[in-house]
Design a protein around this nucleic acid. Structure first.
Lengths: 215, 215
DNA sequence: TAGATTGTTAATCGATTAACAATC
DNA sequence: TAGATTGTTAATCGATTAACAATC
């Protein structure tokens, strides 16, 4: 799963550029310099130019980047226009929030089903979606040719379900559980453990206390 | 805000180690090697040893790390035992999910209030918390000496509120909005933009399509 | 003692930043 | 033309990985 032709950090900045370009276009702007784009997302202009050079830079000296053109280049490069369907496994609070998260559609991601193993939740409505039983998950994925799964279950369930997902044809797992998933090479796993940020935040806050003790 | 004595990636792995050590302790285990710890979180043993060396390595050759000791070292280092109170601004789906997220208390984080500017939401119950009006935010933070704020509002609101938070004494902002916040040096901002992962996922999925087209 | 495992130094890798020639 | 801005190469920085001596 390593054959990226572009650094992951760059890949994560592209959506940011994209958002700001959309806003600028909305405002009627036509071109944008690397300096302005960088400022908008909090990066240096060199960073922006470097990032954009991966997608065959299209800027014009003295002018900047053509907003329309750059938008469509990023769309093509990331495959944003592609219709990407995903399922959520785990209909808890986080699953709900993600199912209803408004930002995803901008990137072509559409949540089309939620699964849970809790009988009480089956049939429950989340937005326009109904919660389905996890027993039907494998068939559903196969029949609908889903390739993206979002995991918001407890870690043990996540570990159990991951192989099923892979067997059913899932190619990308967005893992919100704390479980470390082991999957074949050709399956992308992106881990988002919200708690990890607490390592940084907690250390920072407790550092403040330490300083104030010394003073 | 740069004066970390330890790499951020390490800081984010410490909570992972911590979790696995807790589990191991639960199982009655006494010591754990860097190899085992690494395996649990998907890192190399060298990585583990390197990380732990930042907190004055406490392992024993031929034996491994004393689980009890390491747990308490990490707790001290990250300030996990510190009682850290936080407010959430934005009582939408994500705000709800975070308010009810079970994983935070393990790290000493306690959400004690939710704020919103939508009159319809004020007074609404989220778990045991009531949604308060954002007009009362500054006073609340000052009176309760809150230092951590979690932002789950739309980007424009986030940008507006950030200076207020800083003025009221907030020292760490966990920013789930897409806004790029500009704050004084001594305020920590941790950005979590869920959409950014979609850059990586979308690119990967569309890469699969590209390959299958070629074949 | 012999061997496993740590802690640390050095080598590698990769991303960011700086510099600057090319260009519009 | 002069000057601003790109695109790219080189230098720097920082984190990961490898190697190995120290140690229990």
């Amino acid at each position: 799963m390593k054959s990226f032709d572009i650094p992951i950090p760059t890949l994560k900045r592209l959506p940011l550029y994209y958002q700001h370009l959309l806003i600028a276009r909305e405002r009627g702007e036509k071109v944008m310099s690397s300096t302005d784009l960088g400022e908008a997302i909090g990066s240096a202009p060199e960073q922006v130019r470097k990032d954009l050079s991966f997608l065959s830079g299209q800027g014009k000296s003295r002018v900047g980047y053509d907003i329309d053109k750059l938008i469509s280049i990023i769309e093509t490069y990331l495959g944003l226009m592609l219709h990407k369907e995903a399922v959520i496994i785990g209909a808890g609070n986080l699953g709900h929030a993600l199912a209803l998260y408004p930002g995803f559609s901008q990137y072509g991601l559409k949540i089309i089903a939620l699964f849970d193993n809790d009988a009480k939740k089956i049939g429950e409505k989340v937005g326009k979606l109904k919660v389905l039983h996890v027993d039907d998950l494998a068939d559903y994925i196969k029949n609908q040719s889903i390739r993206i799964a979002i995991l918001t279950t407890p870690p043990e369930s996540a570990r159990q379900i991951a192989p099923q997902l892979v067997n059913s044809g899932i190619k990308a797992i967005w893992n919100f559980s704390t479980a470390h998933l082991v999957v074949p090479e050709d399956v992308l796993v992106r881990n988002v453990d919200l708690s990890l940020e607490l390592g940084v935040i907690s250390h920072y806050i407790s550092g403040l206390d330490r300083i104030s003790l010394i003073k």
